[in-house]
């Protein structure tokens, strides 16, 4: 079964004043375990699409189903819980809560889910070790580099074992070494944990690592290619 089914999704911002057609009829299917990049020039609708998939915003028309559940049927509060339990988010920057340590940030979603302490600690310690942050667990975000912060954000997203992780330009603010490093980690976690990754980017080095590349232009999918890597 697909983890994600999108049919005929359009998104119009400011329909009553200056309408902006950010998405014009997008159809997309994503199955479990994919490592997929959404690419396209600035303003093509990448962020808009990811926000709709993540239930952060509602489409103007069309249907988005995650694991067969139509997001439109969920109330606002149910949607928040749904995000918490099924979707991991990594944003471009400032993902972390400044007053919490790396470990506390990484545990945060599991904490919201009221998972037992022992389970949280074991899971987060293991993941932070995997991303090479075992000696930074008690640091605050301001004491971490941008790349380290993004790694913590990935761990936070991954820790509660969501259906998939949405990452909107996760490397946009990183240098090339940190970018390569983060992608290595994401690819490895994708393989080892079997979690689906869906990320947007316009960085060619990132695009080259994706196993599927969906290209958006002007709110429409113009190409959809699968690579064997």
């Amino acid at each position: 079964m697909n983890v994600l089914d999108i049919t005929g999704v359009t998104k119009v911002y400011n329909p009553d004043t200056v309408p902006v057609h950010a998405l014009r009829g997008v159809d997309l299917e994503v199955s479990a375990g994919e490592f997929t990049a959404i690419v396209g020039p600035s303003g093509s609708g990448k962020t808009t699409l990811l926000n709709l998939i993540g239930g952060l915003d509602r489409p103007t028309a069309g249907q988005i189903r995650i694991n067969g559940i139509d997001l439109a049927t969920l109330s606002a509060n149910k949607l928040i819980d749904f995000r918490r339990d099924h979707i991991g988010f990594v944003f471009q920057s400032y993902n972390l809560i400044p007053v919490l340590t790396a470990r506390e940030n990484a545990e945060f979603v599991m904490l919201l889910q009221k998972r037992p302490r022992a389970e949280r600690e074991a899971r987060v310690t293991q993941l932070l070790r995997e991303v090479g942050l075992e000696d930074r667990m008690d640091y605050r975000p301001t004491q971490l580099s941008g790349g380290q912060q993004q790694r913590v954000a990935v761990v936070r997203a991954l820790a509660p074992r969501p259906r998939f992780i949405l990452a909107d330009e996760p490397t946009a603010n990183l240098d090339s070494v940190s970018t390569a490093n983060l992608l290595d980690i994401m690819a490895r976690l994708n393989r080892e944990e079997g979690v689906t990754f869906l990320f947007s980017t316009h960085d060619q080095r990132v695009i080259d690592r994706a196993r599927r590349v969906v290209r958006l232009e002007d709110g429409q999918i113009v190409s959809d290619e699968v690579f064997d890597r």
Partner: peptide, 16 residues
């Protein structure tokens, strides 16, 4: 505001 946005996005209830 941005931080609040992140928190609600990753699943923190508005009431919390």
């Amino acid at each position: 505001t941005y931080e609040f946005g992140v928190l609600v996005a990753i699943g923190m209830r508005r009431l919390q």
